[in-house]
Design a protein around this nucleic acid. Structure first.
Lengths: 343, 343
DNA sequence: TTTATTTCTTTACGCGCGTAAATTTTATAA
DNA sequence: TTATAAAATTTACGCGCGTAAAGAAATAAA
C-alpha cells in the first residue's frame, strides 16, 4: 500500500490489468483464481491501496461473512473471556465476528438479535440469558438465522448446544470436598436466570446422595446479575444465622462465592483448609478473579477453549453445508478441579 | 409487524401509498416529513414487516450512522463498564455503536481501526493502549475519521480528549491517607503502558511534597495487562523484603491493589484501618470488584458517567458540524473518594 | 502439434437505496 | 378566496459490486 488510493474495483481492474469479474472472484476466495493471477493481484494490492466496499459487497452477496456473538453480560470477565476466544476462532476462519452484550436484559437480547438480523449474518453464536429470555422470539430468530447456543442451554432452540458438563464438574468438586472435610451445603440463587444453575443444583443433590450424604440447599433471594452483591447479602444472613449444618459451602458459581467470601470476612470467619479455619468455600467456573481472592478460591474450571472452538466449528459447519442438521446436537465438556486455598 | 414481509422500499412504497423518496427521507430522519405523513408511515410499519437494507443504505450515504468504540481490553470490567455507558449514549442519539477490544495488543488496536475504516464510521471513540500504541498509524487514522480519545491521552492525536483529573484524584486520596495515618508510598509499574500511570505518579509526588512528605515509589517490574498478577508478585517481594518505609500503600490502580491485597493476605499481614492492622492499601478507579475484596478496597472513583457522556457528545458535535475544531479540546473530570475498609 | 479443459475477458444486468430536478399536491398566510 | 410556501410525487440516474453468458486466451493432456 504505497501508491494512490483506488476508489472502486473498476479502477483497480484497470491499474492492475485484471478484469473486474476475476478480481471479484479473488476477493471472495483468493484460491478460486489461478496461482499466477493471484500473485499478480496480490502484487498490485501491495502497490495500490484498495479494499472492496463492504456495503456494496454485502448488498449483493446472499450471505455476508458476519457472525454474531451474543452474550448475556460483557462486563462479566467470564463472558468477556469466552467471547474473546470465540472471536479468535471466527477470525481465523475468515469471518467477521460482531460482538454484542445484552447486559442482563431480555429486551436488549432481542434488540441485539434484531440488530444482527439487519446485518444479515451468516450465523450467530448465542449464550442466552436463560429463563428470562423471550423464548418465542429467540426461536423465531433461529428459524431465520443459523444459530448455535453456548454456555446456557434452552432445549428447543438453535441448531446445537455447546457447554459444560455440570453433572461431571459438580460431581468432581463435591467428591473432593467430601473427601477432604465435611460434606458441603450448596449456596445458590432461589430462582436463577441461568439454566446451568438448575443443572448444578440437581448435580449437587445427586452427588451428595451418591456419597450417602443429605443435600442441603441455601437459596439466596435476589434477581439480576449482581451476583457478588447477592452472595454477600445472603451470605451475611446465612453466616450470622449460624444455622449452617456444615462448615463447607459450595457455591453455584464463582461470583456468588466471591460475595460469600466477602461476607465471611466481614463476619470475622476465617476461610480456608487449615486447622484454624472456620469455613471452607468453593465455587464454580474459575472466574478470572478467583485467583486473587483472599483466600484464593478453590473452584472448577470450565474448558473455555474447547467450548469456544466447538461452538464456532459447529456453526461454521452448519453454514458451509447450508442446511440444518437432522437433529439438534449437544456437546458437553468436562470441568477441571482447581485446588486453591479456600477449600 | 403483523403482515407480509416486504422486500424493498419500492414495495413498501406501493403498499403504504407513500412515494419512495419520501420514505427514504423518513428513514433518514422521521422528523423531516410532515407529521401527518409520518403517522401514515408509522402506521404502515405496524402492518408490514419492513426495514431498509442496511448495506444498500450505507453504500449510498456519504456517512454511515456507525460509531466505533475501541477499548484496550474488554475483559477488564472497568473498560467493559465505561464502554457500556458510552454505548448507551450513542444509541440514544440514533447512532450504531460498534464495540471493539484490542486485548492489550497494539497490532490488534490497528487491526480494529482498519476494520472500522471498512465500515466507514461517522466517528470513533478510542481509548488507546497508550505507550504501546502505534502512534503514527493512529494519527493517520484520525486524519481520516473524526476521533475522540478517552481514558488515555496521547497529546497530538484525535479531536479531543476526555478523561479523569488524575492530579485532583490522586491529591484527594493522598490527602486522605496522610490525614488518617502514615503518608503512603506509591505502588506502580515501572514502565506502564497507560499514560494515566505517569500522570498519577507525578501527581503523587506533587501531593506528597505539598504536604511536606518525602515521596516513595515502589516500581513493579512486568509488562502486559495481567495487573493483578504483577501486583501480587511484586507485592509479595515488597512485603517480604520488609523494606517498606510506611504502613500505607497507594496503588496506581485497583487491579494492582487487588494483587497487593492478595499478597498481603498471603504474607499474613492484616490490612485495614483498625488498631490491630499492619497495613493500609488504597487503589484508584473504583473497579467493580473493589467492593468485594477482603477487606473492601478504599479507592477513588472515576466519573464514568461524565466521561462517557462528554466524549460521546464531543464526538457527535464534531460529526454534526462536519469540520474539525480549531484546537484540540481536553475535558477532565474529578474523582470521588470511596472510603471503604482497606485504608 | 492438435485437442480438450480450465481460466480469463468482455459485456451486460441487477441489487436496494440516495438523491436531484421538475411537477403536482397540500398546508399556511394574507 | 387567493397567493405563497412547504411538502410530496414522478422520473431518472448513480453507487460499487455480484454474477451470468459468450467468446478469447492460456494451460494441460493427447
Amino acid at each position: 500500500m504505497t501508491g494512490t488510493k483506488i476508489k472502486n474495483m473498476e479502477e483497480f481492474a484497470s491499474v492492475s490489468g485484471i478484469s473486474r469479474p476475476t478480481l471479484s472472484k479473488f476477493f471472495n476466495n483468493p484460491d478460486s483464481v489461478r496461482a499466477s493471477t493471484r500473485k499478480r493481484i496480490e502484487a498490485a494490492l501491495e502497490q495500490y491501496d484498495y479494499q472492496p466496499n463492504l456495503y456494496a459487497v454485502n448488498q449483493n452477496r446472499r450471505l455476508t461473512k458476519n457472525i454474531g456473538v451474543v452474550v448475556p453480560y460483557l462486563a462479566d470477565p467470564f463472558f468477556a473471556k469466552i467471547a474473546r476466544t470465540i472471536e479468535e476462532y471466527i477470525i481465523e476462519t475468515g469471518f467477521r465476528p460482531v460482538l454484542l452484550g445484552s447486559h442482563g436484559s431480555p429486551a436488549m437480547e432481542i434488540a441485539n438479535l434484531d440488530n444482527l438480523r439487519s446485518i444479515k449474518p451468516a450465523g450467530v453464536l448465542l449464550a442466552p440469558l436463560g429463563r428470562a429470555s423471550d423464548q418465542e422470539t429467540l426461536e423465531a430468530f433461529c428459524e431465520e438465522v443459523p444459530t448455535v447456543l453456548f454456555d446456557a442451554n434452552i432445549d428447543t432452540i438453535g441448531e446445537a448446544f455447546v457447554g459444560s458438563n455440570n453433572e461431571q464438574s459438580i460431581g468432581l468438586i463435591v467428591d473432593y470436598l467430601c473427601r477432604t472435610g465435611e460434606a458441603p451445603c450448596f449456596f445458590e440463587m432461589r430462582s436463577p436466570t441461568n439454566p446451568n444453575a438448575f443443572k448444578r443444583r440437581s448435580a449437587y443433590i445427586a452427588a451428595m446422595e451418591r456419597l450417602g450424604h443429605t443435600p442441603h440447599l441455601i437459596q439466596a433471594e435476589g434477581e439480576g446479575w449482581e451476583f457478588e452483591e447477592i452472595g454477600f447479602r445472603e451470605g451475611m444472613r446465612a453466616l450470622s444465622d449460624r444455622n449452617l449444618t456444615t462448615n463447607t459451602i459450595l457455591c453455584s458459581n464463582d461470583r456468588l462465592a466471591i460475595g460469600v467470601l466477602s461476607a465471611a470476612f466481614e463476619t470475622g470467619l476465617k476461610v480456608g483448609i487449615g486447622e484454624d479455619c472456620d469455613l471452607r468455600i468453593a465455587g464454580h467456573d474459575d472466574h478470572p478473579f478467583s485467583k486473587y481472592t483472599c483466600p484464593t478460591l478453590t473452584t472448577v474450571s470450565q474448558d473455555y477453549e474447547a467450548i469456544a472452538k466447538k461452538s464456532a466449528s459447529l456453526l461454521l459447519e452448519r453454514i458451509e453445508t447450508e442446511k440444518a442438521a437432522d437433529s439438534r446436537r449437544e456437546a458437553l465438556f468436562d470441568g477441571r478441579l482447581i485446588m486453591r486455598s479456600s477449600a
